[in-house]
């Protein structure tokens, strides 16, 4: 089955009010071109689930988010995201579910395992539970009778991921040093859309590569969008690092967003790439040292 689609096809599969999970972590391997397409669309009232970076900042400033399920929002090299901060401090982000990053992992895992919840101690004794009264406790049925948090499944309508290579069937390879929780996002979602640096012929995959870098099965993948540089301005190791200069420009634009929108969002993705210096300049950004 050929799953390669255009960005227009991708947007046509999304609906107002959907719950969308975004893979990657902070400013690392975020499917930013797909995020920008959502910013360019008329979609609204979305629930977003993310180990947040500029994906969440951009969608906040574009007022696409009705509810945000998150553990943090950070640009890594710049600790805080000015767009997300603006949205929270101005009261424009209608609803937040702020949970421990491990609870987020548990919620996605429960959804992927088709369970209503997974037990954990994480969250006990903190305002995470006070602020989220929908998260309940469960008592261990064993002799310990321990009171545990029943972290509810976080079911996603859609997951968005960015990978290094994919074939047209959705066999993907992630070469970055940390696969983050992309596999769990894919398992928690009804549909997963993947942007890929390279569309490749899978006959070129060798066994060792597949064993190390194929993190989830192709049956989870509904659509492939080939897009070299699609993670910019976030990192996509080993091809390019975080574009710190762009993130600085992005950070400054929280107060004067019109200019940023004009240059990067009211244009198509090809023009975006041109406006940030072209694909060669993206792929020459040195890998980020942490």
């Amino acid at each position: 089955m050929n799953k390669v689609i255009t960005t227009n096809d991708f947007i046509s599969k999304l609906e107002d009010g959907m719950t969308i999970g975004i893979g990657g972590w902070g400013a690392r391997r975020k499917p930013m071109s797909l995020v920008r397409e959502i910013c360019r669309s008329n979609l609204k009232d979305l629930t977003l689930v993310s180990y947040g970076g500029p994906d969440i900042g951009l969608l906040s400033s574009c007022k696409k988010i009705r509810k945000l399920i998150f553990g943090f929002v950070s640009l890594d090299l710049i600790p805080l995201d000015s767009h997300f901060r603006n949205a929270r401090q101005s009261g424009e982000l209608p609803e937040v579910v702020e949970i421990d990053e491990g609870m987020l992992q548990w919620g996605l895992r429960a959804a992927g395992m088709n369970l209503p919840f997974l037990p954990t101690r994480v969250g006990i004794g903190t305002d995470v539970l006070k602020n989220n009264p929908h998260i309940k406790f469960v008592e261990s049925p064993y002799d310990d009778k321990e009171k545990l948090v029943a972290m509810p499944a976080i079911k996603l309508d859609v997951a968005l991921l960015h990978v290094n290579e994919s074939d047209e069937k959705g066999n993907t390879l992630i070469f970055g040093p940390d696969p983050f929780f992309d596999d769990l996002f894919a398992r928690a979602a009804s549909k997963t859309f993947v942007s890929t640096e390279k569309l490749v012929d899978s006959t070129s995959f060798d066994k060792e590569k597949v064993a190390n870098y194929n993190r989830f099965e192709r049956n989870l993948v509904s659509g492939i969008i080939p897009d070299e540089g699609g993670a910019h301005p976030t990192a996509c190791n080993p091809s390019y690092g975080i574009d710190l200069d762009h993130l600085k420009e992005y950070s400054k634009s929280a107060k004067t967003f019109d200019e940023y929108q004009e240059k990067y969002l009211f244009v198509d993705e090809a023009t975006y790439k041109k406006n940030v210096g072209g694909i060669k300049s993206i792929t020459s950004i040195p890998l980020t040292k942490f």
């Binding site: 401090q89 009261g91 949970i99 421990d100 491990g102 101690r121 969250g123 006990i124």
Partner: peptide, 26 residues
Amino acid sequence: ISSIGNYAQPKVQLLGVRGFPGNSIS
């Protein structure tokens, strides 16, 4: 490390709780 001020509309939004709840209990 989450936010300063009223939670519904914080005066200063910080990082978010990250792994602090789990770290502190573990």
